[in-house]
Design a protein around this nucleic acid. Structure first.
Lengths: 161, 161
DNA sequence: TATATTTAGTGGCATATACCACTAAATTGA
DNA sequence: TCAATTTAGTGGTATATGCCACTAAATATA
């Protein structure tokens, strides 16, 4: 009963990462029977929704580094869920698409995902969940990054900017 | 104007990870002059706040796998910011603490962190930020994991549980 | 048109994070 | 007290994710 270490919960960034680990773990457990990870489901789903998007476009949508996306896709390509198709008109571009096998897996995982999502909404409350997603999606937008970058950090001199 | 791929933003887990990447990036940029990453700052700060916590305790507080914590700590130990001290009474246990150098770095980074935090609160709004942290911290609690696990996913039969 | 700049992707390297198998130490129980 | 079980950490392996350097291709510019 001496010190009882508490979490340092004032940093939004740390709080976000911590919650992300927790929820990631929870979803992961539900998705486990599929043999794929939560992140991979997100990826397959985004690919399914953004038909024929290039790697660049996909990376932007996912707010992810282009090379990170490339790396993350490797196992999915290796295992036949996803394929890269060179663009005809711009030879730099590669378009990402699900294979039939990948689409089947994505649909199969969606059944499991629905369970996780239902559990989440029951645990947190539908309103709360909706509000949280709105806030998170707002933070993910490019306009938020701009607002953040432009925002005052309290150390500016009086100079006009 | 053919398809305009939109993000798939109904999955709270994906939304959380996406927002985490975005905000992580934003904080990272502000903390960059220190030479350490955002996650490392979180780690140093949590260690500073939980004096003499064991790896196990720290992992629980951070909602992190024990081995993941061990791995993440490696570079910080290697570079002299953190040290592990074997516990006297329980020889399995190792207590984690900042070196004087580590403490100095943590304090130095806190100056930068305050700027990032200020920018964040200005960009999102103080109320919103506060509410978001509360929601995230709630999700990070063990009680939430229990609620999630116990929650209905809509597929239960009428059996009593 | 020839050159400079920008854009898309790749590969290497480093950190972040999880799971599994394994060791050592503490705790339980017979 | 000795065997069975639980707990704390470690090391290996795999995915997740970012940065940098580099190539190739497209675009802009002189």
């Amino acid at each position: 009963m001496d010190d009882t270490p508490k979490v340092w919960d004032f940093c939004t960034n740390s709080a976000l990462k911590r919650a992300s680990r927790q929820l990631g773990q929870l979803y992961e457990d539900v998705l486990a029977p599929s043999g794929l990870r939560g992140t991979q489901y997100s990826l397959l789903s985004q690919i399914a929704h953004s038909k024929n998007a290039s790697l660049r476009t996909l990376a932007d949508l996912l707010v992810m580094d282009l090379s990170a996306l490339g790396h993350t896709l490797k196992p999915l390509i290796r295992d036949g869920y996803v394929e890269l198709v060179p663009d005809a008109s711009d030879r730099r571009v590669k378009r990402v698409q699900l294979t039939p096998f990948g689409l089947k897996k994505q649909q199969e995982m969606t059944v499991l995902w629905r369970k996780a999502q239902a559990r989440f909404e029951n645990a947190l409350g539908k309103q709360e969940a909706e509000a949280l997603r709105r806030a998170l999606n707002g933070i993910s937008e490019a306009s938020f990054a701009e607002a953040f970058t432009r925002a005052s950090d309290g150390t500016e001199s009086g100079a006009k900017g």
